[in-house]
């Protein structure tokens, strides 16, 4: 679920508010999005993929994590490379190559083509 909105990184572009398929965010008074309906988060990572400044972090768990979880520790997430890792892996963002262009996976059967998705 969505666990972190970094006010320091956020550029108040409203993109996450727009793209979340389950309408989890509201725009806060200062423009920084607020996680208003975390229980509706479906852990699809789309908000993170679409955040231009890597200000969001979605933990893989489908239940909320306790306050002391490292999912709320921005410095830890940055140091470990997890913050923004999905956007990096799919090659979204200025100067990056779309991951789709190099998505050549293994072939699941000897005669089959490589998996590309």
């Amino acid at each position: 679920m969505i666990e972190l909105v970094s006010a320091a990184r956020c550029v108040t572009c409203d993109k996450c508010v727009a793209v979340c398929p389950t309408n989890v965010f509201d725009r806060g008074a200062d423009g920084v999005p607020v996680i208003s309906r975390q229980q509706d988060c479906q852990t699809c990572f789309q908000c993170e993929a679409n955040c231009p400044t890597d200000a969001l972090f979605v933990a893989p768990h489908t239940h909320p994590l306790p306050a002391e979880s490292s999912a709320h520790d921005e410095e830890h997430l940055r140091r470990t490379g997890l913050l923004g890792s999905y956007r990096r892996d799919i090659g979204w963002g200025h100067g990056r190559t779309p991951g789709a262009a190099r998505a050549v996976g293994p072939a699941l059967s000897p005669s089959g083509p490589p998996l590309i998705s």
Partner: peptide, 22 residues
């Protein structure tokens, strides 16, 4: 112009789509 990848033999591969990109 979806960026399909190219296989080891230089042939374009069109048997899948990356969800967010598609």
């Amino acid at each position: 112009r979806y960026p399909f990848p190219v296989g080891p033999d230089g042939e374009p591969l069109r048997n899948g789509l990356q969800g967010p990109e598609y």
